[in-house]
């Protein structure tokens, strides 16, 4: 990140309250911001600084702090810098604003997060099921969802060492017959 870019960005973002910028390297910037100010930041970055690509929205479940962290990854094709804007929202009720009106692709990311974490985005065009069309349980990516327990409750297992396999093994066979052992036989 050149000096000029950095200065430009600083001038641009000085009006936003509570913004904290951290630079990791030439190409990565982290912006911590309050949830209320995020839409303004995104609008500013898109409209004035050329960050036109919302490459992803990711979500982290901080269950100990009872918070969800939402990360908006913005990319500029001009300066080739990726800015990740981090916000924290309360885990309960887990509702936030949609940024669909600023970035249209956000609809898909928000739908996905809604499905996986149960975060509701107000104003998002479609919050119906996306990938897990058959899923009826709780949002599976939440930390309080115990996948293993759920699997144990839902599915049955078959014996991994059934009688017929033991029979074969007794005969010296089995499923694993390496080429070496075969060569030995011949």
């Amino acid at each position: 990140m050149s000096e000029a870019d950095s200065q430009k960005l600083n001038v641009l973002l000085q009006g936003i309250e509570g913004l904290q910028l951290t630079q990791f390297n030439q190409r990565r910037l982290r912006a911590d911001i309050s949830p209320e100010a995020l839409p303004a930041l995104l609008a500013l970055l898109r409209g004035r600084a050329g960050y036109v690509h919302l490459s992803a929205i990711s979500c982290v479940d901080w269950i100990a702090e009872d918070e969800f962290e939402l990360v908006y990854h913005l990319y500029s094709y001009e300066t080739k810098i990726l800015i990740s804007a981090h916000i924290r929202i309360a885990r309960d009720p887990g509702v936030y604003l949609s940024v669909f009106d600023i970035f249209t692709p956000a609809a898909f990311f928000e739908r996905d997060i809604h499905e996986m974490y149960g975060v509701y985005f107000e104003g998002s065009p479609d919050m119906s099921k996306f990938i897990l069309t058959e899923w009826q349980g709780p949002p599976p990516m939440r930390k309080d969802f115990d996948s293993e327990q759920w699997v144990m409750d839902t599915f049955n297992w078959q014996d991994y060492h059934p009688d017929w396999l033991q029979d074969i093994e007794q005969k010296g066979g089995g499923i694993v017959r390496t080429p070496e052992s075969r060569r030995g036989e011949e």
Binding site: G137, F155, W157
Partner: peptide, 28 residues
Amino acid sequence: VNGGMYWQSYATAKKLDEYLPVDLYIAG
């Protein structure tokens, strides 16, 4: 057979022959 390496995944079915009659398994 039993979900293999996805055994604890909530999204994959485990025992195929609960849903379809399977004639033969080739494990591995």
